[in-house]
Nucleic acid binder design. Structure first.
Lengths: 141, 141
DNA sequence: AAAAGGGTTGACGTTCACGTAAACTGGTGT
DNA sequence: ACACCAGTTTACGTGAACGTCAACCCTTTT
């Protein structure tokens, strides 16, 4: 039974962050929970939850909140309505291009580290051949 | 004519960063230029340049300097010599695993944004069909 | 000898992304 | 009515990653 609307600390708990973090993202314009007018509490629905997971994903990937905000603003139909769609689309293409470049760079980095890793692994193998352990090395940590 | 040893500001210029940044990385233990004993200046060879590019790559990908330092320390034969190779290798495997996860997450993010992008593109197409521009829309920016 | 052009070491300032604490408010159980 | 809990605002604190500035060498040019 997924409640459609949850409180700030519930949402925070669910996503393993603190309420403060959520409020901060709102303060930065990344979230807009139901909190208008004369309501004393913030309530978060599926839309805000989706945004938050997007934000957290972006953070894990090393994007700044400003960059993430740009992505979210692109992804937000309402906000973009009435804006020049051509520009928006072109801009989105640029961002996607950058994402692809980032992926390639990550793959490159992984390749580098993999190389060194293999060197080490072989070095380890040789050592174990030279002076193997008395008892067959136990596999438990 | 690639000089094997360059000054700090030369290196900074080459990599589009500031000398301060380079000194900071040294202070954090990420770089060890020739600066021992009784030398008044720092000099950077190919080894340090390689490290620096690795650092910058890591930064672009959102890793903290602490994380990057871990990678570098793995990648550094001298420093690891005498250390428990088994642990090093195991640890490296964990890092590589994390890298792979990050790649997957990036691909996921790109997928999400691509979806939204296509929605927008189609929206734009429809609009242009409804009320096409007087003159056939010119394709130049 | 004096000035100029890098390089060096502090040391303090700054931005981002929150952490933390205080003081207040609003509904809820007893 | 009162305690209690969850949420809110306000504000100051913090760690990472540098920026900026001052004051002090060397070395080279004039």
């Amino acid at each position: 039974m997924e409640q459609p609307l949850v409180s700030i600390s519930n949402l925070a708990q669910e996503l393993l962050i603190t309420p403060r973090t959520i409020r901060y993202y709102e303060e930065m314009g990344l979230l807009t929970p139901l909190h208008h007018e004369k309501m004393s509490q913030r309530l978060y629905g599926p839309r805000e939850r989706a945004r938050l997971t997007l934000i957290l994903r972006g953070k894990r990937l090393g994007f700044s909140l400003a960059e993430i905000k740009e992505m979210i603003d692109l992804y937000d139909i309402d906000r973009t309505e009435g804006l020049q769609l051509e520009r928006t689309v072109a801009y989105g293409e640029k961002r996607l291009q950058e994402l692809e470049e980032k992926i390639q760079e990550l793959i490159l980095l992984k390749g580098e580290l993999t190389d060194y890793h293999q060197q080490f692994t072989e070095l380890l193998k040789k050592r174990n051949q030279e002076r193997p352990k008395k008892e067959d090395a136990p596999r438990q940590q």
